[in-house]
């Protein structure tokens, strides 16, 4: 018998995309369900729910995490950034433009997680070469593109940032 039925909700307070939010949730609720169901931030996707595919990648206190492997209660007090917040901040506008130009998104289901992961690499090492890029995104499953266009878009963004 799952334990949730007998355990009362727990209040989680976090700053999500710059906005302070508070919700009473079941302790077993994972972070991506919290974002999608409680906050209706549906840009973070659920692909496997066991930490392999990377579709639910979000940023928590500056580091990317799998939203399906972290509980919402663990994000209490944290700064959480999703694709919606990342987009609105303008931080990856250049990367998004290159994804568009290069057709680095097909169905778009992996794309938010892929952008989250790529944003981290570009912030740490904009000069990363193709092999490093491929290794960095190797935890994000894309069934459509075959990855080459994604690598191209990230590489191009890094080059342009390096020139600025």
């Amino acid at each position: 018998m799952p334990d949730s039925i007998d355990i009362p909700p727990v209040v989680v307070t976090a700053t999500v995309n710059g906005e302070r939010v508070s919700r009473a949730v079941e302790p077993r609720m994972n972070l991506v369900d919290f974002l999608r169901e409680e906050l209706e931030l549906t840009g973070s996707h659920i692909g496997c729910e066991h930490g392999v595919c990377g579709a639910c990648t979000v940023r928590v206190d500056g580091t990317i995490v799998r939203g399906c492997l972290m509980l919402a209660v663990q994000a209490d007090g944290a700064q959480v950034l999703t694709i919606e917040g990342l987009s609105e901040s303008g931080e990856i506008a250049d990367l998004q433009e290159n994804f568009k130009t290069r057709n680095a998104a097909q169905c778009g289901f992996c794309t938010p997680g892929m952008l989250m992961t790529a944003a981290e690499l570009l912030a740490e090492n904009p000069g990363a070469g193709r092999t490093e890029i491929r290794e960095h995104i190797s935890g994000n499953f894309c069934r459509c593109t075959g990855y080459q266009a994604i690598v191209d878009a990230i590489e191009e963004t890094g080059k342009n940032r390096g020139e600025k």
């Binding site: 998004q96 568009k100 778009g108 952008l115």
Partner: peptide, 20 residues
């Protein structure tokens, strides 16, 4: 470029599970 790709790049697509 594809006309419908922008929403997907901004986390604003509407997949069936996004609908309530």
């Amino acid at each position: 470029p594809r006309p419908n790709v922008q929403r997907l790049l901004h986390g604003r697509g509407t997949f069936t599970d996004d609908i309530k």
